[in-house]
Design a protein around this nucleic acid. Structure first.
Lengths: 112, 112
DNA sequence: ACACTATAATACTTTTTAGTAAGTTATTGC
DNA sequence: GCAATAACTTACTAAAAAGTATTATAGTGT
């Protein structure tokens, strides 16, 4: 199963850039979280409040996956209570064009 | 349930353009189908073959939803065997920027 | 001792999305 | 009268994504 995912990943990367991109950001919450991080680094709780409808579980899951895929980075400050900061990596920043065009399209479409 | 979807739709449209856009194109196959239609109108079978991995069912379901949302139009020629052509509407065409940036990002990311 | 904090994990359920396989239609050409 | 055609539908199953509710951690202030 793992090997199949692995092969599938490279197959798509080469043959279908668009779908490849979608596998990295095509979930309900990923684009939103990334979009808010365009404003700059944010600590966990603050970022989560920017997406008020997201559940605790989905927030954690979303940032975990974004981190695993190298789109955001996670910095833990060894204090109590804990402090965690997320920010876009270079790779994540390169999504800015996509994120802004998704947002802009929604705004424009709303006018009709 | 229907009324809730309806309200939710307008809520999102106003409050979260990015997510609103994603509800229209954020499935496994929609972006790909739309992307291929950027080349111009295409009849059903031809379009489906451009997305070779898609199942018959998902193809129909995908174009049905895109049509319902006014992103593509469907023209039936009254011949036998049937001939059906799909093409982007104006609204669908306005997604070009998003679709190309999704594709381009995948291509660029592949280089790393 | 105990509540409070910010962050996160886990178990479990529900909902949504996608896949498989088979059937339908209505005419043409043999 | 039967196969071939293009487009589509339906019933059923499987997999993925998302939601709910509960619990964990570990030091601080009372």
């Amino acid at each position: 199963m793992l090997i199949i995912n692995y092969l599938n990943y490279f197959f798509m990367k080469i043959n279908c850039p668009l779908n490849y991109t979608m596998t990295l950001i095509g979930t309900k919450w990923k684009p939103l979280v990334l979009f808010h991080l365009l404003e700059g680094a944010s600590r966990s709780g603050v970022l989560q409040k920017k997406v008020p409808e997201i559940s605790n579980k989905m927030f954690t899951q979303t940032v975990r996956e974004l981190e695993k895929d190298g789109l955001i980075s996670r910095k833990v400050y060894p204090v109590v209570p804990p402090k965690v900061e997320y920010k876009l990596t270079k790779r994540g920043e390169s999504l800015e064009g996509i994120l802004r065009s998704l947002d802009k399209w929604g705004v424009e479409d709303c006018k009709n």
